[in-house]
Simulated assay, not measured.
Amino acid sequence: MSDFTLLHDYLLPISKAGLNDDQEYDDFQIGGVTDAYEDGHIPNLDIADVILLGVNEDRGYGPGRKSADAADIIRKAFYNLYYWHRGVRIADLGNLRKGASLEDTYAALQTVMAEVINSHKTIVILGGAHDLTYAQYKAYAARKQVIEVTIADAIIDLKEGSSVPEENFLMEMLTEQPNYIRHYNHLAFQSYFVHPHMLETLDKLRFDCYRLGKVRENMDDIEPVLRNSDLFSIDINIVKHNDAPANTLSPNGLGGDEACSLTRYAGMSPKLTTFGIYGYRPEKDRESLTAKQIAQMLWYFMDGVAVKNKEALLEERDAFYEFNIVCADIVTLFLKSKKTGRWWMQLPGRGKEDEFLPCTYSDYVMASNNEIPERLLRHQERL
């Protein structure tokens, strides 16, 4: 990515001084260590681990619903935090130029993200309506890369007949041909907002949907889902109103700390290359509390990246404990990382290092008791 001119025409620089009220950031604040695109300064993207991109595109919300400067308000809160992960290098591309139409913005975002993905970097998108997830997906489709997608949203955006992009973008994303989605996971939906037939349809497609209560019941069960994901997208409506006042959809949702756990799990994923946090409406916020919540979610994402960077490869068997289990007359191998404590189970009949499914300790316990873990059953069904 040394040739910044490939991206320059799509981007607008930011001003660190403007974000920090004309004060310099401390060397230990995130604003002090982030290599940002400013007038006169081009970030070194080659050495970055994580690349930030603001997208102040609000047309996906529908007519008359504007949320300008969402990315910069989040960025201001994030830059003020102290950074404990010096080994994780952050670059900031500034903000994407809005296109003449929403489709033009999609195309520009797709181009920038595809370039970052090609360079084996992780890109984080801030701001904008949730339909920008579609452009996130198209960056992979343009490369004909088959991926696993995970979305966290209180609603499932499959509203047929709606002209509002953020309400129906999933329909096009999941059904267009050719399609490059190998598997789809939906996290933290709230049942009273979702038509039962919609869930039945997704289940028939062998997609996995986890209601809010299921996610909150055992957050650790969600970590393997994110560990296997290439694309992760969050609508901030998953966080309950008290913890994210800009979410006016529902008083219920994940707690702020639980949302931080999700983003930390995402950062720990060795496969994840794009991560978007959408749906922030500054005009609905109170004391910028939602922006601060998102900033802390980003902090925990970086914490997860720091953990990922320490994890061994599966073929480095000295870094794992090995457990051979006979379950339902099938011999399978479980691995536990000595560095992070995470678990993997070998897919029956595969026998290759790369044919391991991320799992949890509870899956290992089930297999030890001669019960086939549901995670494995669902995976076999999809195959």
Score class of each variant (00 low, 15 high):
H197Y: 15
V305L: 08
Q136W: 00
F301R: 02
K240V: 12
K240L: 13
A108T: 02
R59W: 05
H120Q: 14
R281A: 11
G18R: 11
H120M: 14
S362F: 14
L53E: 06
R375F: 00
K338L: 08
G267T: 08
M302F: 15
D39R: 12
T263P: 06
V194G: 02
D27H: 12
S101F: 00
K138L: 09
L96G: 01
P63H: 13
P13G: 09
L262E: 01
Y180W: 08
T150Q: 05
Q23N: 14
L170W: 02
L249A: 11
A108M: 09
E57H: 09
M297A: 13
P63T: 15
D131L: 02
G161H: 11
A259C: 09
D157L: 06
H85S: 09
A77I: 08
N309I: 04
Q380C: 14
Y210C: 07
N20C: 06
L272A: 07
L53I: 15
V124T: 05
A71W: 00
L383I: 11
F28T: 15
I236A: 04
K16E: 00
L289Y: 10
F169Y: 11
V215H: 01
L249T: 13
G64I: 03
I181P: 03
E148N: 07
G94E: 04
Y61Q: 05
V307P: 01
P196R: 04
D153T: 10
L205M: 13
G304A: 10
R350G: 14
R89L: 11
Y210T: 07
N185F: 05
H85D: 10
A129D: 09
L212D: 01
S162Y: 01
S101Y: 12
I73P: 01
S261A: 14
L226V: 06
A17G: 09
Y280H: 05
Y106N: 05
Q136H: 13
L289D: 07
L202D: 01
L93G: 02
I90T: 08
D69M: 11
T201I: 13
R86S: 11
